[in-house]
C-alpha cells in the first residue's frame, strides 16, 4: 500500500498546507490567527521548494530558496507582531474587523 514518496506526494502536502493557510487568512478575525495563516502558506511553498530540489534537477537552489523563505518569514512575523501590538494598544482588541477607521 505504501509506496516510496515521490514529487507528487510532496506537492500534495504543499497544496494542502497552502490552501489551509489561505482559508485561515480569510476566516480568522484574530490578527494573530491571520499571521498563522501566512506561516502555513509560506510553509506550503517551502515544501514545494525542497521537494523540487530533491526530486528534479533543480539542485541546491530549491533548498537555498526555502532557507531565504524561512528567514524572511521570521522577519515578517516580527514586524507583523509589532503592528498587532500597536493595533492592540490603540483598539484594545486584536479583532481585525475592528480596524475600520479608514472606512468611508
Amino acid at each position: 500500500m505504501l509506496h516510496d514518496p515521490d514529487l507528487n506526494s510532496y506537492l500534495f502536502i504543499g497544496a494542502v498546507l497552502f490552501v489551509c493557510g489561505v482559508i485561515c487568512m480569510a476566516t480568522k478575525r484574530n490578527a494573530i490567527g491571520v499571521l498563522m495563516g501566512v506561516e502555513l502558506v509560506l510553509n506550503g511553498a517551502n515544501v514545494n521548494f525542497v521537494a523540487f530540489s530533491r526530486y528534479t534537477t533543480l539542485g541546491l537552489d530549491g533548498q537555498i530558496f526555502s532557507l531565504f523563505v524561512i528567514v524572511l518569514a521570521a522577519a515578517e512575523a516580527a514586524v507583523a507582531l509589532a503592528i498587532v501590538l500597536n493595533f492592540y494598544n490603540n483598539h484594545l482588541t486584536v479583532d481585525v474587523d475592528r480596524g475600520n477607521k479608514l472606512k468611508g
Binding site: Y10, S53, Q63, I70
Partner: peptide, 21 residues
C-alpha cells in the same frame, strides 16, 4: 514539515525550520 525535510535529504533546512519557525 521539518520531519518531511529530513526525509527529503535536506537536513539543514529541516533544522532551520525547527529552530527558526
Amino acid at each position: 514539515v521539518a520531519g518531511l525535510f529530513f526525509l527529503a535529504d535536506a537536513d539543514f533546512i529541516g533544522a532551520a525550520q525547527l529552530l527558526i519557525y
